[in-house]
Write a protein that binds this DNA or RNA. Structure first.
Length: 279
DNA sequence: CTCGTCCCCTGGGAGC
DNA sequence: TGCTCCCAGGGGACGA
């Protein structure tokens, strides 16, 4: 599910709802997700206040009023849902909702539930002062909506690679937060063939960088894409899935030239593109 | 190093 | 209706 626009949508919902919320308890319904919860996870969080919720790449970072931050990843199917009403909250906290793996309760009576059927998600705690060097973030490339993701940077990064440009865009070390949907969408906007070797696509770096930024901004403005699992923290769906130009549209007509859209496999993932518009 | 392949896990949809 | 197969937004561990 969640690429940068979806994670950013969740971040905004969490940040707005949980600023200054004080954690009362943390219930773990199992010992691990993609990785084990660290020892003392719940204990380190109880009584702490959430200051801000930030995002780096596809990770959410909850800054606490201690030295710690919670790091969370939605994997493919993770959801954060806020139970707003005390009654709903108590029910949520007590519930054994299928795949509700973590339940935070707050002093104000609300609850935050992390639900993740596939359990590719992750939740851990780390020192705020050492986040940039944390194993999960070291080696992560620039944020695509910040200045570091410049045409010059992308040109140099692509020039060093041999693999297809679409695979390169999905590499979190090259640029943070772009996944399978938005890599296809961005290359369509840029008019670049996803099969093109990265070093040859380097000449189009400015167009590609601009397209990545454009599609991510559009998707954030639409509240992300809900194909199956993705929901806002309120439970609402995003609606950018209705705006896909190529993703999931195999055999349908290209929005620009009306030729048929093709589906190929790259690195085990589906890629959608227009052979006429993308060279 | 970089690249491709496989795997983790559950659920939903297509096809028979 | 029910079974089997395939596929899914991510990422990390392998081996070549």
């Amino acid at each position: 599910m969640p690429e940068l626009p979806e994670v950013e949508t969740v971040r905004r919902g969490l940040d707005a709802a949980l600023e200054n919320a004080v954690i009362e308890s943390v219930m773990l319904r199992r010992k691990d997700l993609r990785a084990p919860f660290p020892d003392g996870f719940a204990r380190a969080l109880a009584g702490r206040k959430i200051l801000r919720v930030k995002r780096r790449a596809k990770y959410l970072v909850f800054n606490l009023d201690s030295d710690d931050a919670i790091i969370a990843h939605l994997g493919m199917s993770g959801r954060f849902l806020i139970a707003r009403h005390p009654v709903g909250c108590e029910a949520a906290a007590r519930s054994e909702g299928k795949h509700d793996h973590v339940v935070f309760t707050f002093k104000d009576g609300r609850a935050l539930i992390f639900n993740d059927p596939r359990r590719f998600g992750l939740m851990t705690v780390a020192k705020k002062s050492a986040l940039a060097a944390h194993k999960l973030f070291a080696g992560t490339g620039p944020e695509p909506l910040r200045k570091g993701f410049s045409p010059e940077y992308l040109k140099a990064a692509l020039a060093k690679r041999k693999g297809p440009v679409k695979t390169a865009l999905m590499d979190q070390a090259l640029v943070a937060g772009v996944g399978n949907i938005y890599a296809s969408e961005a290359l369509f906007l840029a008019g670049v063939d996803p099969r093109k070797p990265s070093h040859k696509a380097a000449d189009h770096a400015a167009k590609i960088a601009g397209a990545v930024r454009q599609v991510l901004k559009e998707a954030i403005a639409s509240g992300g894409s809900s194909l199956r699992d993705f929901r806002h923290v309120s439970g609402e769906e995003g609606f950018f899935q209705h705006r896909f130009r190529v993703y999931g549209r195999e055999g349908k007509s290209c929005p620009v030239c009306h030729q048929r859209i093709f589906l190929i496999r790259q690195g085990g993932r589906s890629t959608f593109f227009c052979k006429t518009c993308q060279k």
